[in-house]
Design a protein around this nucleic acid. Structure first.
Lengths: 130, 130
DNA sequence: TTACATAATGTTATATTATAACAATTCAAA
DNA sequence: TTTGAATTGTTATAATATAACATTATGTAA
């Protein structure tokens, strides 16, 4: 369980924006959208993004350099992420599969080593784009 | 099975460099290293990298914006990649586990959808850094 | 061989993504 | 109420990646 720190002003503004977006948002597109609210510089955006990622409110889609809000209530989620990405329309969906997360959380490599964190990105075509 | 296209000059130079490197290499560090061989511009590097990724000779570590040579002989490997990454020393190892790759290749999401490609990055501490 | 298509190269410029460094402010805990 | 940590504001710059266009090499089929 986490202590639920309330978000700060910039964090809240940026989280709300990402949370409402139907698609992953990129940092400079976020910057553009929040300039009217007084967030003027890239660093202000990146700092909020870093924090939001750290506390698990958003995730970074590494292959796209973009951010989506987390809608998965699980605690572990910032350390164990999986997404499906449509290679045509770029729609991204967070995958929450107990089977998958258990499998990966317990995965051991050749040396018997377990890992504390993972990120998995699946690529293919979404229903609409098939 | 692939038809084995021989690499072009730039591709070969850049592949050799990455292949010899004990750690993932970044594009501009590659550029710096190959300037004495006549590769002067970022685009020349990125084009070779793109091609090498496409044909599966190297992989991109998305969370690090860096590239490593593939040492996995499997054909599928450019569409199905998994790595372990040490969060202290940044050592990256390609994971080749039949179990893992079968599990992921056959993974279906809630809608019963399968994916043509995936990339998985595990994070933790390597043996030396524990 | 010639000519055609395709891929690769070279080059300049620029777009995109991200962080360094430092000063000022906020805010909760001791 | 002070003090320490986190957050913010700001300017500048670093790091990563692509656009656009001209040229050169390579393979393939007539």
């Amino acid at each position: 369980m986490h202590k639920e720190h309330p978000l700060t002003k910039n964090q809240q503004i940026i989280f709300d924006l990402i949370d409402k977006s139907p698609e992953p948002m990129k940092a400079y597109s976020i910057l553009f959208s929040v300039q009217k609210k007084g967030i003027k510089a890239p660093l202000q955006v990146y700092r909020a993004l870093d924090k939001l990622v750290e506390i698990g409110k958003i995730h970074k889609i590494e292959s796209r350099n973009a951010f989506i809000a987390c809608h998965n209530s699980s605690c572990q989620v910032s350390k164990a992420t999986a997404f499906s990405i449509c290679e045509i329309c770029e729609k991204v969906t967070e995958i929450s599969s107990t089977g998958l997360s258990k499998y990966l959380a317990n995965f051991k490599d050749k040396d018997g080593m377990k890992y504390s964190k993972y990120n998995l990105e699946f690529f293919g075509l979404c229903k609409k784009c098939r």
